[in-house]
Design a protein around this nucleic acid. Structure first.
Lengths: 211, 211
DNA sequence: CTTTTTTCGGGGGAAAATCCCCTTTTTCGG
DNA sequence: CCGAAAAAGGGGATTTTCCCCCGAAAAAAG
């Protein structure tokens, strides 16, 4: 019996094209092409022909790769997810692997690597590139504590990414300027930055603020 | 005679896959798949089988879509460029069109649209989506003067996207703090921003600084 | 019902950033 | 060589930011 693959990516051209690639491989067929996680879950609900492997983009609108992988791990643990991404961001890779992904490929990998990954994930259960192995190992060795921001801090952080002064931010948040200063100092500490530019850079890097 | 297409994209998986799509279309063949503009120019130098259409990603390392299109317009004006991009950024679209691109497609367009674009670009000479038409029209009506930054201003702008104080920036640039203040004020004026956060946001939005 | 933690608010001073008006030096086309 | 323009530097005032300190109220935990 052939392996059944689903491709999930918001870039239609890419998902269509990847589906085409996969169809070229012997023993693989494409059973679904979806634009985001929600579509995939819908498909799984309504169709009997479930995939056993999902090629999933990480950055998608509506329902991204991490959320979707978590949902799959919970409700369809027999489905193996291979993440596709344009970037090799350590944090994102870790999140995806922790969410249950069996592999993490960059979008500029060779066709042959994709094929091997598909085969390995089915046969061996996982496919890790050297980069991923390295990241996993270093994450084991120094389990750095995750930075957790509170709701109100995130709200402030977003406002700090504007040209408002802290006083103006205080008005918007209906707080005293002094309280806002408190948030600022707390974030300086937590995020290990020295000034407002540091806050802005952190917020953008971590997708708290999208410019 | 078949149309000859070259695909240029740094994401191997995507370019391979798009090449696969194009091969499905009758009257089209793929003569080259390149990872960036430099590779394409190399190919054009060394091979006789020139493409008449190039599908080109905009964001590439080494030599991006805009630079490459400019080079093509100059040295190989008979080659028609269709831009491929993940984002519909007005400024980038304008730059690509001005550089000589005959079409601008998002990476989440349908296969059929890609086919139509290829056909139209060859037959009619261009293919503009509604969005592109709108942008071109609005650009005609209000030809806003382009903001031109000097070398030294760009250098300063990048440094402003760090946690350095202006005094420290002055040291790095081997200038007096007062001169650096001058650059700052000039940029506030040019970019229509009020403070350093504005500078940082502008630099990031315009890819002068990549976080 | 206490105790602790979280949230909110504040004082005051030093440093940095912002703003306006001005001079000197360098560069460059005519 | 000269004059204009651009680049570099500056004085000084005001606002904002940064960085310590502190206390009260509210919420959560015991």
């Amino acid at each position: 019996m052939k392996n059944r693959v689903a491709v999930v990516d918001d870039h239609t051209l890419l998902s269509e094209a990847i589906a085409g690639l996969v169809r070229q491989f012997p023993d693989f067929e494409v059973v679904a092409v979806c634009k985001n996680g929600k579509e995939l879950l819908n498909y799984l609900k309504n169709s009997k022909k479930h995939p056993n492997i999902v090629l999933m983009d990480v950055n998608m609108p509506v329902m991204n790769g991490i959320e979707t992988t978590l949902a799959l791990s919970k409700d369809f643990p027999e489905i193996k997810v291979i993440a596709l991404s344009i970037e090799e961001d350590e944090q994102i890779i870790l999140k995806m692997i922790r969410a249950g992904a069996k592999g993490y490929l960059l979008k500029d990998t060779q066709k042959e690597v994709l094929k091997q990954a598909l085969i390995d994930v089915e046969k061996v259960g996982f496919y890790h590139t050297n980069t991923v192995k390295k990241i996993l190992k270093s994450a084991e060795n120094n389990p750095k504590k995750e930075i957790i921001l509170k709701e109100r801090e995130i709200e402030f952080l977003k406002l700090a990414c504007t040209e408002m002064t802290y006083k103006e931010i205080a008005d918007v948040m209906c707080l005293s300027p002094k309280t806002v200063e408190g948030y600022r100092e707390a974030l300086f500490q937590k995020l290990n930055v020295k000034n407002r530019t540091g806050l802005v850079l952190y917020a953008i890097k971590n997708n708290i603020f999208i410019p």
